[in-house]
Design a protein around this nucleic acid. Sequence first.
DNA 1: ACCTGAACACCGTTCAAGT
DNA 2: ACCTGAACACCGTTCAAGT
Lengths: 190, 190
Amino acid sequence: MTGNAREAILAAAKTAAQHRGYNGINFRSIGEAVGVKNASIYYHFASKAELGAAVAERYWQDTAKVLQGIGEANPDPLRCLAAYPSIFRTSLEDGNRLCLSSFMAAEYEDLPEEVMVEVKAFAQTNVEWLAQVLAAAGLGSEAFCERRARAIYSAVAGAQLIARTRRDIALFDELIDSYRDAGLLPGMQP
Amino acid sequence: MTGNAREAILAAAKTAAQHRGYNGINFRSIGEAVGVKNASIYYHFASKAELGAAVAERYWQDTAKVLQGIGEANPDPLRCLAAYPSIFRTSLEDGNRLCLSSFMAAEYEDLPEEVMVEVKAFAQTNVEWLAQVLAAAGLGSEAFCERRARAIYSAVAGAQLIARTRRDIALFDELIDSYRDAGLLPGMQP
DNA sequence: ACCTGAACACCGTTCAAGT
DNA sequence: ACCTGAACACCGTTCAAGT
């Protein structure tokens, strides 16, 4: 049963971070949600920075699993690429949340180094997965695929950011379609 | 001479917001920078929300002027489009700052409605300018140009967000080049 | 092993008071 | 007309103390 409160704190902090970013992680609110006093959180996490890093770490690890699942469910690399934006779309669907990484990218001046490390790991996970799938689709050299992977990742993150501002999932879909029409994303509807 | 302290407060708040977002606007720090006590700021701005909205409003108005300048300096619409990303690049050059709008898009759950209105005006200004230039370049129907304008804006904003995280302007340039190679941005080096 | 109350310096905000 | 000091509730954090 050990780690039960720790898990609950982590879950509450993740929800808060996805809605309001690192700055939105509030020890008193989390304590309330979990059923402990805010001082108790320090028994489980040495600081807000450590809690934030733990949230971000788990976040990119979860995303890595989802990406792996997409790869396994879609033997055709072009289908994988078509499914990729759904990760970002899901966040918007689910309470108009922003990708944790984009959030923290915006906040980064206030971000402790240990949190930043995990944010970078998230981007790295996405880019590596995309580069690999682009290569499997035979779309170009290794260097080209990595370059294009970075472009896709940043464009999709931008689409999520903008769509969120308008609370408009249809706008997100339109932006992704435009990327596809323009040739940034390899063609094919999901 | 009236409005002198008001201007100084606005300038200090703008700098803070460009580095740390709306949450980074700190009345005590701004008071110190301006040479007044934090309570005095309330004489000029009724609340942090009003100050934030004033900062965001001036920000999109300044950007509108820069866009107009690009249009006047480049009779060729394709040259205008090639110059567009420079607006976002300049922020990164100048202290690795993020476009105020992207910042506030990330923070938006905490953003007072009056600030949000100005953030949307910034996006609108960019998209309208882009759509007009795309149309002038004869790149398609009005509907197509507006759609593509939104895609360019969100992709460039995403590139700035990601490049900022790595404190790497070269990455920003590479992403923009990739967008151009892929066909999202009409071709031609700036 | 896990939690708490009380305190700290810091924040936005208010307000009565000063010039 | 413009500014201030003192107070408020709120934050992250610490720490001695409880079970």
